[in-house]
């Protein structure tokens, strides 16, 4: 087993790790893995919350690829972000089982009530809203993932609680 892959899977941003040092240490740790580019991109995003532009030339050099190739992979996969997300990440499932239980209404609610739209971060930096297409929680729909944890049978009221709490915390912590 590759114990080097046992990275933190939570997408929250811890502290302020140094981006370049993080990138380099991930590269060193995973250099010998076959097909290392995806594990490295995950490794960087696990720590930094996104993959900064500075990672591209470094990854290209380490893996003997062109920068265009690295960029091609980075932009192909929905998971990878190239800009820092908000302090919390809310992923709302848009797939069929969740639609059957009203996820569209939740999407509209987040937009109308909280001004949150997919792929955008709230202006106060409190939360980023992302779509996700099934988390295997389809018997307890509608589903969301809050900072990496699945929540089932979600209601508009529950969303209000979370968003308000994040907003309140954002006040003193810009």
């Amino acid at each position: 087993m590759d114990s080097r892959l046992q990275a933190n899977t939570s997408p929250t941003v811890p502290g302020t790790p140094d981006p370049l040092a993080t990138i380099d240490s991930v590269i060193v740790a995973m250099r010998s893995l076959p097909g290392a580019l995806l594990p490295m991109l995950h490794g960087i995003q696990d720590v930094l919350g996104h993959v900064p532009g500075a990672a591209v030339p470094r990854l290209a050099e380490a893996l003997n690829l062109s920068q265009a190739e690295v960029h091609g992979v980075l932009s192909f996969y929905h998971d990878f972000r190239t800009v820092p997300p908000g302090r919390h990440i809310l992923r709302l499932c848009r797939a069929e089982a969740c639609q059957a239980m009203g996820c569209d209404a939740l999407e509209t609610h987040l937009q109308k009530r909280h001004g949150l739209t997919f792929h955008e971060t709230a202006t106060d930096g409190s939360v980023t809203l992302e779509p996700v297409y099934c988390m295997g929680n389809c018997a307890c729909a509608p589903s969301v993932m809050v900072d990496g944890e699945v929540r089932g049978r979600v209601t508009a009221g529950k969303l209000d609680q979370w968003v308000q709490q994040w907003r309140a915390n954002a006040g003193g912590n810009p």
């Binding site: 087993m1 590759d2 892959l5 076959p34 097909g35 290392a36 580019l37 995806l38 594990p39 991109l41 995950h42 893996l63 091609g72 992979v73 192909f76 996969y77 929905h78 998971d79 990878f80 996700v132 297409y133």
Partner: peptide
């Protein structure tokens, strides 16, 4: 020996040849 790799949110990687490309570190 058994290894695990994480996908990165691309439905197409459930298609077997796209998955192989992804395992090799490329676009799916």
């Amino acid at each position: 020996e058994l290894h695990v790799r994480r996908g990165a949110g691309a439905y197409i990687c459930g298609e077997e040849t796209a998955m192989l490309e992804s395992l090799e570190g490329k676009r799916g």
